[in-house]
């Protein structure tokens, strides 16, 4: 499989990264060389193999239903690029 410029634009859109036409051409080349590299995996028959998403075989740890953090508004708003005393502020969301 190889991808074209249009696909590069489409995935850039999904990833919310704006890409100029010029960048898209370069990316098209880069991404295709990476894809053809990873496609070596197609040499392997993996029909009967289980996929693994994590290496640990520990059971998922669970916490108790206890509130442990109090008001952290200051901390979470501290680094915000735009805010007022209560909210994060962003350019208008169009729904």
């Amino acid at each position: 499989m190889s991808i074209n410029k249009e696909t590069v634009k489409k995935i850039s859109k999904l990833a919310r990264i704006s890409v100029s036409d010029q960048q898209a051409s370069k990316l098209e080349k880069n991404l295709n060389s990476i894809l053809s590299f990873v496609e070596q995996l197609n040499e392997l028959n993996t029909e009967k193999i289980n996929p693994i998403s994590t290496i640990s075989n520990q059971k998922l740890i669970m916490r108790d239903d206890v509130v442990k953090v109090s008001n952290q508004k200051e901390d979470i708003l501290k680094n915000a690029p735009e805010k007022n005393s209560s909210y994060y502020i962003v350019p208008k969301v169009v729904e």
């Binding site: 979470i76 007022n84 209560s86 909210y87 994060y88 502020i89 962003v90 350019p91 208008k92 969301v93």
Partner: peptide, 10 residues
């Protein structure tokens, strides 16, 4: 709350 902005409460 504002004509050009949205406010976020988490």
């Amino acid at each position: 709350q504002d004509p050009t902005k949205s406010f976020i409460d988490l």
